[in-house]
Amino acid sequence: MVKEHHDNDKTPAEVQDRIWELADKIDICMFTTWDGERQRSRPLSARVRREEHAIHFLVDAEGQKNWQVDKFPWVSCAWVDSGGHKYAVISGSAEVTNDRAKITELWTDFDKAWWDDASDPSIRLLTVTPDDGELWDSPNRAVAFAKMAVAAVTGTAPDFGDNAKVDL
């Protein structure tokens, strides 16, 4: 279901496809939690699994985000392709588990920067179940810069291309 639809020629299904595609392609997202007083964001490597309707992260057992997710499970993940002016945000509920089989399945050489191997007992699985997403699929940088310049001169807001919000 489409919640909002702004100057967008994509169908809701196409918007959903594009959000999942950008999340998978960009990889690193800003993962935002709530600590009861303020939002906290940090970059995390996302394992996007649309077929599971899930986004997985390998995290350390000691991270503050773990208790934040336990107490306030609603989170958001934001991916930015700044060179292409493309942005995707997925919001949903998160859970931290000690699913050793899934941790092993998701393990990559990239993770060796933090742990020796997938059997490290301090690794936890953080899984986000998406609820909704938002997409900004913008024109190229030169066009975006020109639109910002025109906006600055005319005092009008620049049009940065398609924006849509959908349920996931």
Rank of each mutant, 00 (worst) to 15 (best):
I55C: 00
W107L: 05
E21F: 09
D131F: 06
A142Y: 04
W114V: 03
M30Q: 12
V153W: 09
V48D: 06
P139Y: 05
T108Y: 07
V69T: 07
A46M: 07
R40T: 02
E134T: 10
E14I: 02
S122R: 08
V89Q: 08
V69N: 03
V75M: 10
D132A: 12
D7A: 04
G155K: 08
W115L: 09
L22Q: 02
L22I: 10
E51W: 03
H53W: 07
V150H: 01
D137R: 01
M148N: 08
I90T: 01
K71H: 13
S45C: 07
S45L: 13
W79C: 02
R100M: 00
D70L: 11
E4R: 15
D117W: 06
K65W: 09
I103K: 04
E37D: 11
P43L: 02
N140I: 01
V166T: 12
D81I: 11
S91Q: 15
W136R: 02
R100G: 00
T129E: 07
E21N: 06
K71M: 12
V89E: 06
D132R: 14
D27H: 12
S93E: 05
G83E: 15
P73E: 02
E95N: 14
S138N: 15
L135Y: 05
P121S: 07
V153H: 02
K147L: 12
D27Y: 00
A61E: 13
G84F: 01
G36V: 11
K65A: 07
L125Q: 09
D116S: 09
W74L: 08
V89W: 01
L126F: 09
K10H: 10
N140C: 01
A118R: 03
F145P: 02
F72E: 07
A151G: 13
K102M: 10
D162K: 09
A61V: 14
C29L: 07
K10I: 04
E37G: 10
S41N: 12
E95A: 14
W74I: 00
F160E: 11
E37Y: 12
R38Q: 11
M30R: 01
A142N: 10
L125C: 13
W74N: 02
V153R: 08
A101I: 04
E134A: 05
D120H: 08
D132P: 00
T127R: 08
A144T: 15
A54D: 10
D60E: 08
D70G: 12
C29H: 04
F72G: 05
A164G: 14
S122H: 08
W79P: 02
E21L: 08
K86W: 05
F57T: 03
H85D: 15
D9G: 10
D81W: 09
A78Y: 03
G92W: 09
G84E: 15
E51F: 04
A146L: 15
A142Q: 13
R141F: 05
K165A: 14
S45E: 05
Q39V: 07
D24N: 09
